[in-house]
Each structure stands twice: as structure tokens, then as C-alpha cells.
């Protein structure tokens, strides 16, 4: 069956954006296609006249260090991220979140840019990137601009990055440094769709015996990938103790909007998982910050 007509593999960002413009809404960006093509096949999205694949754009196939950031190109697959020593040690929660998506065959083609563009509230890689303070570089009719990623989410599966006009060219975050660590955890069920019942990531900066600052992302906990701002505020300045972590979970429960998703998870279960898993996630990030050692866990699980 034909679900699109033309398949483009441009070699520059400008060319990709120009192709999108030429098709006037009848073309869209494709990452690995492991979500997008299924949605088209299953009738959840319209068929396209053209697909624009960024995986041959020069410079976007790799992870580079630039201006104090780790910069991940649009063509970088989950496998590349999971295997990258820099991300493993200094963006650990991203490796842990990208490492649980699908099996190797999916991770070998699916891109982080595609995951973020999909804007699912519980997208694993999205949650990991959000906790790290990720920014995305969007190229489109208005040129190329960087945005904090949380500013681009507008609803479940909806983002200001319109894949029919724009592309996410790069993703970047400041790697964790001295006294800093990150961690990701999620809870799955063995039935139904392969989306987490709930997933969460934390990035923690210690200053001696206290948590100086912290970023926490949770999904699904809102209509968009959720940054737990109140919990982050609460944790800043607290000692990294189990009591603090338990209280943080209670703060998080005040600010999240949990709902029951049929055949996936009840709001009550999600609430309980935040109570159980959030302290563990923060504790793991703290442990990594204290030890300066980070070995990603659960990759491929």
C-alpha cells in the first residue's frame, strides 16, 4: 500500500525546510517513522504526499559538544544516544529513558527528535530530555531558533513545532557536572500498548549537604510532558534525605493532574507510583551526584 508518494533525504536543513514549504502542508518530517508511519497506516493521521527524512543531513547524525552543551542532531537514533559515553555519564537519565523504548530494531531507527516532536505526555526520551533542561532548535519558515522544550508542548501529541512546516534540527542540554546527577524510572504493565503507566526523571545539583537545585519531569501527569515546578522548588535547599524525598513525592502529588487511562493505568495506581518511585528516582540522581559515578540502569529492559 502507498501511504506517501515521494521520499526525500535532503542533505541540508535549508533544503528540508524548502521541501516542506513546497508541498504546502502535504509533506511532513519523518524520524525513524516507528510512530508516524503507524499513525498514517492506521488512519490516525492523513496520508502524505511526501516524507522528509533528516537522517542524511550533514552534521545532524552525531552528538557533539558545543558551547558547554551536548548537542544531539535530528538524525541521531536512540541506539546512538544509549551507546554514547558522554551521555551515559553526563546525561544518564536520557540514556535510561531512551534505552527502554521498543527493542533494538526500533531504537536503531527511532530518533530523539522524532520522540520530542511527537509530544506525547509520557514519551520516555521526552521526559528524560525535559528533566535535563533540554532545548530544541527549530528550523522553519521563520528561520532557526532555540527554545526551551517545555515551551513547545501545547497538548497531548501537539507541539508548536508543526512537522509540516518545521523540523527539530537539534536538541541540546548542559551535561551534568560536579556534584550533579540524573536518573529515570518508569513502571510498565505487560499488557496493552507499550506506553509507561508512569515515568519520571530527575536532575539534581548538590551543593555540599543540600540540594541546590533540581529538575523533575513526570509523564503522563498532565496534558503535556510535565515539569514538576513546585516539587523542584520544594527540593531546592533541602538536605538529600529519604524524608525529603518522601515529602517531595507528596508535593508532586499536589501539582500533577493524574487521570485514569483505560487499559493502561488508574489514577490511583499512578498516584501510588509517584509515592513509591519519585523518592527512588531523586535518590538515585543524588547518589550519582555524590559519587560522581553514573552507570545507566535498565537499558533494554
Amino acid at each position: 500500500m502507498a501511504y506517501w508518494k515521494d521520499y526525500y533525504t535532503p542533505t541540508t536543513v535549508e533544503e528540508a525546510v524548502a521541501i516542506l514549504a513546497r508541498y504546502e502542508g502535504k509533506a511532513c518530517m519523518i524520524g525513524g517513522g516507528t510512530d508516524l508511519l503507524l499513525e498514517i497506516q492506521q488512519g490516525h493521521r492523513p496520508k502524505m504526499d511526501a516524507l522528509v527524512d533528516p537522517t542524511r543531513i550533514e552534521g545532524l547524525q552525531e552528538i557533539v559538544e558545543e558551547d558547554g552543551f551536548l548537542v544531539i542532531g535530528a538524525g541521531v537514533t536512540h541506539t546512538t544516544i544509549v551507546n554514547d559515553e558522554r551521555v551515559r555519564s553526563r546525561g544518564t537519565c536520557l540514556v535510561e529513558s531512551c534505552g527502554v523504548i521498543g527493542g533494538p530494531q526500533v531504537r536503531n531507527v527511532a530518533t530523539l527528535a522524532g520522540n520530542i516532536a511527537h509530544a506525547l505526555p509520557a514519551g520516555d526520551g521526552t521526559i528524560g530530555t525535559l528533566a535535563l533542561g533540554g532545548e530544541i532548535q527549530v528550523a522553519g519558515p521563520d528561520g532557526i531558533h532555540w527554545f526551551p522544550m517545555e515551551e513547545t508542548f501545547i497538548g497531548p501529541g501537539k507541539s508548536t513545532v508543526d512537522a509540516k512546516q518545521m523540523m527539530i534540527a537539534r536538541i541540546r542540554f548542559r551535561p551534568t557536572g560536579d556534584q550533579e546527577g540524573s536518573a529515570f524510572r518508569r513502571v510498565m504493565r505487560p499488557q496493552g500498548i507499550a506506553l509507561p503507566m508512569i515515568g519520571m526523571a530527575a536532575r539534581v545539583q548538590l551543593q555540599g549537604d543540600v540540594i541546590e537545585s533540581c529538575r523533575i519531569a513526570i509523564g503522563p501527569a498532565s496534558k503535556v510532558p510535565f515539569l514538576a515546578v513546585e516539587t523542584m522548588k520544594f527540593l531546592a535547599g533541602q538536605p538529600p534525605t529519604s524524608d525529603t524525598f518522601a515529602k517531595a513525592a507528596e508535593v508532586a502529588l499536589e501539582e500533577v493532574q493524574l487521570r485514569t487511562s483505560p487499559h493502561r493505568a488508574s489514577a490511583e495506581y499512578r498516584e501510588e507510583m509517584i509515592r513509591v518511585q519519585l523518592p527512588k528516582t531523586v535518590a538515585k540522581a543524588v547518589e550519582r551526584a555524590q559519587s560522581g559515578q553514573a552507570v545507566p540502569e535498565g537499558v533494554g529492559a
Partner: peptide
């Protein structure tokens, strides 16, 4: 639908699901 993996072939050294690989 890129679910069962039995269509796996190796492209440039890596296994991929050929059923959903343009």
C-alpha cells in the same frame, strides 16, 4: 506495525524492522 520483529533484516550492520522501514 513494527511490533513483532520477525521482518528483521540487517541494514548497515544493525537490525531493523523492514516492514516499517521506508
Amino acid at each position: 506495525e513494527s511490533e513483532c520483529g520477525i521482518c528483521s533484516v540487517i541494514v548497515n550492520g544493525r537490525p531493523v524492522n523492514s516492514c516499517i522501514y521506508p
